[in-house]
Structures are given as C-alpha cells and as structure tokens.
Nucleic acid binder design. Structure first.
Lengths: 344, 344
DNA sequence: TGAATATTTGAAAACGTTTTCATAAAAACA
DNA sequence: TGTTTTTATGAAAACGTTTTCAAATATTCA
C-alpha cells in the first residue's frame, strides 16, 4: 500500500506538501496540487488510519468503541445498527465487544478500547456505579450510556421511559379485566428492569390491586430458559395468573414456550404482553401485544450524542428519554367470565 | 495514560529495557525486571495498541475486520458472536461493518479495514467474483469467507451444505404427501440461495414431481416484506401450494405473517418449513419445522481458520462445509385427504 | 527601488511502540 | 593475566502520519 512518502517522491515534493493537499490544511500552489493529486491516484493512495490515529489528538481517531451485553440479543443488535448507520456517515470505524453482563469482560474491553485510542465508548453500563467507567470519563474519553443509566456521574445517556412502559403494559391488562397479573423481571439488577417493575407495581396500586409476591418472578434476562421455567411455576400455582408481563424479548420467548407446552391458548386461556417489538412479534400467531422500544433510534441518538460531544467537548451531558409504545395485537384479550369465576 | 517512556523514567532504565520486560523478548537482569514491573504497576501501564499496530508487521496487529450484510439479521449476529468468542481469547479486537449487500458499502469498508491494518477480514462475499477482495488477498491480508463462497480464488471458507438443506426440507414435505410445494428464495444472486433452490428442485425431480415455475418466488432476503407479499400471491393462486419452504429466517417471518393474516391454520391448512433455527422458532405456536444452520459454530470455525492462517500463512486454503439439520417440529404435517383431493 | 508582506515549500519533531546494532561490564576460558 | 564469550543495557531507526518552525521566493506597497 502506498504511503505519503511514495506519493511525495512520485510528485517530486515533500511529504508535508502531500499531507497539505490531502487535508487542505493550508494553501498549496494549484499546479503542485494537481501533480500531487495525480500521483495519489496513480498509486491508489489511501491514508493509513493507524498512523493518523497515533498522531491524532483526542477526538480525531475516527474510532468508536461499543460494549454490549450480547449481540445475539436482537434488542442490542438493533441498537448497534442504529449506531453504525450514524458512524458510517462520519467515516468512523466501530469496535464491537460483548460483555455478557460480566464485569470482568466489561473491564477487559474498557482497557482494550482505551488502548485502541477510541474517540468514545457507547455502552449499557453493568453497574450503576461503574468505577472503571468513571475513570475513563476522568480521562476525557466521551462515554454515552444507552439503555441503562449511570448514577454517580452525569453522562450523555439514552434510555426509554421504562417505568411508563411497565405501567402501560400492566394498565392495558387491567383494563381488560385482569387482576392476577404476573411479571417476569431480571434477577440481575439493572435500572431498566427495576423501573419496569416499578411501573407494574404502580399500575396495580392505582387500580387497588394488591401486589402478590408469588406473581413476581426474577429470571436471567440473557436467555429464555429461566423465564420458561418460571412460567412453568406460575402456571402450576393454585390460582395461576390470567396474564403475564415479560420484561424483555428473551423472557417473552420463554413465556411463550412454556404456555404453548402447557397447551394453553393465547389469549383465551392467558394473556401475554412482551417487551421489545421484534420482527417475529407480529408474524406469530396470535400476533404479540408488546411494549416497543425504539432500539434502532436509541442507537442513532446515542451516536449523535457522541458526535455532538466530539464537536463540543464541554457541553452539558444530556439525558434523552425516548418513549416506549404499547402495541396492542392479539395476545391480550378481555378476561372472560368463566375464568373470572375460576380464579376469584 | 502512561507510556513506555514514563515507565522507563520511573524505573531508571531505557524504554528498550521496558519493552523487553513486557515482551520477554530477551533476557533482562532479575533485579532490573522487578524494578520495571513495579513501575508498570504503579503507573498502571497498558501498552498502546495503536502504536504497536503501526510498528507491527502483518499478522501482529491484533485487529480483525468483519463485514456482514446486516447485524440485525440474527443469522449474522450469531456468526459474529461465534467469531468474537474466539477472538476474545486471542486478545484481538473486532471491527464491525454492515454492508446491506451493497457492493459500494462493501468496497468502502474493505478500504477502511485495509487502512486500519487489520490482520484479516471475515465476510460473506457479495459477489462470487469479488475483484476488491481478490486484490486484498494479493496484498497478503487473510480473508475468510463465511456463509458464501468465492469462485475464482481459493480462500478459507466456511459454508453449510445448502443444497442438502434445501433437499432435506423439501424431501420432508414430500414424505408427508405434499406435492404442491412453493419455495421463497432470494432475488439477489448468492451461492447459498442458489444451492438451496437446487436442493428443492432435486427433491422434486427425484420424486417425479414436475417443477412449477409459479411456485418459485424470488424476494428480498434482507427483510420479511417481499416474502409476505409473495406469499399473498401464492395463497391466492387458483391451486395454491399445500406447503411453503422459506429459504431464510426473514422470509420465513414474511410467510408466517401472510399465512396468519389469511386466517389459515398451520399445519392443518398449510405446512411451513423455515431456514435458520432462531430462538423464536421453538417458542411460537405451532413450533416451526426448520433447517438449522449452526451459525454460531460457523463463526467460531471462521475465526479459527483465520488464526490458523496467521499461524501459518502459507497453508493451503481450507473449505469447511458444515451440516444443516432438519428440525421437525409442528409446522409441517401429513397432507390430509380432503386437501389432496382438492389439489389433485 | 527597497522594504514589507504574502505565498509556497520543506526539514524535523512528535505520536508510542519494537527491533537492530553497538557497547560496556561480567564471566569463562586458556 | 590476557583473550574470548556471555550477559545486560541503551541509542537510534523505523512504522506513516500531522504539525511546527523556518526559509525561500513572489508579490505588494510606499
């Protein structure tokens, strides 16, 4: 691959001049410029981004780091795609890291990204008080939190109104006559799940429904397995719930699997509200009622916040709260009388 | 962030010695070593990967490039995860690029990756004759093709037996008495889809079933929309198919959506075989019969081939063909007589 | 015309490593 | 003891850029 030096030699100028032609950083004589440009084309010159990065001051390295729990979780792959579509237009490359919600992996990758001189890092923080992340902020590397918040430090953040999402989901069920409503939430402590559960509780309270601890189940949000098992438990309760609210896409799958295995009909036997509106949600039978998170847009917004900070490093951190949206499809229905008798 | 220079100063040695301690590249006095290590710890020294990369010869840059059509397609996110889990153990970072099957984007990202001095690139090639990719191979940068093949150049490659996948899917339907079997395949020309269709045709031929062009539909494999529309067309045919074979996960969703919209029962009214066994396939009702691609393992294998090539740059390119697997669930069933009469 | 200014260019330093080459000191050998 | 070998270390070059500083030439002004 051609270097500045080779171009300079071919054009009979110094590398300084070539650099100037490339970056337009100061005037060069028209004739010289043409000569250089011709040489660049002839040699198919492309600047070496590694050398540029080494030389560059912060914010100029054209590299962005992403640490997500798991790219196999479609919620995150949607976020990643939103980010990438924005960075694409800025000539940035993106380094992708999967943390599995594992603090050691997160720590490892934060070190790698620092060492790669990234211009910034976008991530859903694992800990609400992330020391490592705080130390990175101190270093002046822009951080954008997405999906979850950081408590102690003010940082650019994109989240959805999780409390409202939970509230809307459960209110919808209550409107349809449901009283025994179960929730599947995360056993790992994250602000997002905590708030969804708060919304669940508020909806119940506001409607005078007592909270029944047996209907609150905590499982691993990284896969559908525990959700399936917990749903098995829920369905074998003496008085099982007439509706289940699953707080992320994988747990929703676990619920569906268990319900189907039990030969129950949705929504006749049980109503389901999921979280995350993924492509399969509207394709299945019955189509799933769900809380839609604008994951792709969250990614876009996070990337935009990052670029705004590169532009203006001293601006106040911004917290963007996006709207969750209840999409009513056919997995929820009015509680029929027979069942009401049954369960009351 | 601390540099070699600072560590050297603190330890009262030259940067050469510090470098030697880090890399163990040659003997240093035990006492000196300890002094250096202490300084490294005190300063929390981490080597700068950018500088290392600039200095490194090829194959030492610890950076791998990935160009995939779309990370939102879960088949690819599974591949990416498989790759990443292997690179993680090798201290590699991964740059992720989405091409949308757009040759210009692919070209753009290939340039970026070259310019980033990646040690290698893993991708499903868009063109069977990819000039740009060939020129990268000439440069000596290892390429691993995954999911699709490259025709003119021998390259490390991981694919599945697509023809067999198509054949198995359709044979299964034929065994159940289906004769009017539709296929939804890709309008974009890729080796994978071409072969799946070949398998479809061979299964029909071997069973003496004539190929009906009206039952072969080509749609955009990047989303479910055209598949939905094409299924609408299929279902409104004078004598509609009794079974549909969808050749990737997104097209499968389109088929399901259309079928459900028409109020048809699966498998009573129509049988469906999908491609790709994603988490939702077994959770939906009825659970989906599908051809499973070991996407995660394909990614792992591709990454392993890459590392083997780094290890031994001159070894013969290897083509690994993995097995697709028919997973029979409940979206396919014996064709009942009534229908047989109807359609014959 | 001479001085001041603007234009155009290049040499060299810097970014943080690894590696080559040289050399001083220590150890081994005769 | 003098010579050779081994051990331990550092100076400097290199990777490919960008940027600072200086200088040479051309242009403008009085």
């Amino acid at each position: 691959m051609a270097t500045l030096k080779e171009v300079a030699k071919k054009a009979g100028v110094s590398i300084t001049t070539v650099s100037r032609v490339i970056n337009g950083s100061s005037k060069v004589n028209g004739e010289t410029r043409e000569r250089v440009q011709k040489a660049m084309i002839q040699l198919d010159y492309q600047p070496n981004r590694v050398a540029q990065r080494l030389r560059a001051s912060s914010g100029q390295s054209k590299l962005l780091g992403l640490i997500i729990p798991d790219i196999q979780n479609q919620f995150y792959s949607n976020i990643v795609r939103g980010i990438e579509d924005v960075t694409y237009g800025h000539d940035y490359a993106v380094i992708l890291c999967n943390s599995d919600e594992n603090p050691n992996k997160e720590r490892f990758y934060l070190e790698v990204l620092k060492s790669e001189s990234v211009d910034g890092i976008i991530l859903p923080p694992i800990h609400q008080f992330g020391e490592e992340i705080e130390s990175i902020i101190e270093l002046g590397i822009p951080i954008v939190c997405v999906d979850r918040k950081l408590m102690r430090k003010k940082v650019d953040t994109v989240v959805i109104g999780n409390e409202k999402g939970g509230y809307d989901a459960v209110s919808h069920l209550i409107e349809q006559g449901h009283k025994k409503i179960a929730i599947l939430t995360s056993s790992l402590q994250f602000s997002s799940f905590d708030e969804r559960q708060k919304g669940y509780e508020r909806a119940l309270k506001e409607n005078g429904i007592e909270i029944d601890k047996r209907l609150i189940k905590e499982g691993d949000p990284r896969s559908s397995e525990t959700a399936r098992e917990l749903t098995d438990e829920l369905l074998s309760l003496d008085s099982p719930p007439s509706a289940i609210f699953a707080t992320n896409n994988l747990m929703t799958l676990g619920v569906l699997e268990s319900v189907n295995k039990h030969g129950m009909q949705i929504p006749d036997d049980i109503s389901i509200v999921g979280f995350d509106d993924l492509p399969w949600a509207k394709a299945i039978s019955p189509p799933l009622t769900t809380i839609k998170q604008p994951a792709y847009e969250m990614g876009q917004k996070a990337a935009e916040l990052f670029f705004q900070r590169v532009e203006n490093p001293s601006r106040e951190p911004e917290v963007v709260i996006m709207e969750p949206k209840l999409i009513v499809r056919e997995s929820t229905a009015k509680l029929v009388n027979a069942q009401v008798k049954d369960t009351e």
